[in-house]
Amino acid sequence: MQVSLQISDISKSFKDLKALKHISLEVRENELFGLIGPDGAGKTTLFRILASLLLPDEGQANVAGFDVIKDYKQLRKNIGYMPGKFSLYQDLTVEENLNFFATIFNSSIEENYDLIKDIYVQIEPFKKRKAGDLSGGMKQKLALSCALIHKPKVLFLDEPTTGVDPVSRNEFWGMLKKLQKKGITIFVSTPYMDEAALCDRIAFINQGEILQVDTPSAIVKNFAKQVLNIQTPSIYKALRVLGSYQHTHSIYPFGESLHYMDSRKDFDWNEVLNHLKNEEIKDVEGELISPEIEDVFMELSRN
């Protein structure tokens, strides 16, 4: 497998804030790679460095064989970049936006039409509408079309699904999979843990540090701790009881249930459930489950 993106030991600070701390990462050619982390983790800073928009304080990075500092001119011709907020001209129509971005990349809508076709047909009925009047999902599709118009080798998508409803999010990931089949390497960031499973490989990032890199399934499989899923109508009370339980390693609400991890290596989970019952919490049910991506992320970011 060829390496499409090579990041070695990148650091970047803004005044007192260390946005990135010695980041190293490899993305293979034609991979759909996800950078997963909450707001403020350093995702956007890393994206900007890779798109040659920011200079790192330390370290090096290569994108599609071009150094992000020295070969920035070549690099810019070969990447597509979609910044966090959909950067479109709000007062230009869909068609005008697309035409403009095609022109500045020395291309035209016709030239790479088959690449953007699947996406563009969905917004084509609105091509005379101003970008500012589109819904979030439409804007996202238009922005993606604009980023693809020059047939980039590597596509950088910085939080493309933030602020977009689940239906559009779902469609969007479908489009990414199709683009991947056409040979484009995709580097995407997201704050949503549930999108991690849709990537080939993911990297967890938190407070400027990479916590782990692997396939989503391997990350879950290699997790060392057991997770006890507890269900009860009185979630809040159970949360408080386990919050002060002597063997609790961590206790987090997960929707309607609680995820409990024990501080001991081996533990009898019935003991935990009994403890809850003794504290007069009713209708307690529990089972051991395989951890979710989010369990792993929280465990890693606690350390």
């Binding site: 928009l53 810019r76 011709k77």
Partner: peptide, 13 residues
């Protein structure tokens, strides 16, 4: 402000 400058910058312009 709108963020389009970012795209102009990464373009070959």
């Amino acid at each position: 402000e709108v963020g389009t400058m970012e795209i102009l910058l990464v373009s070959p312009l």
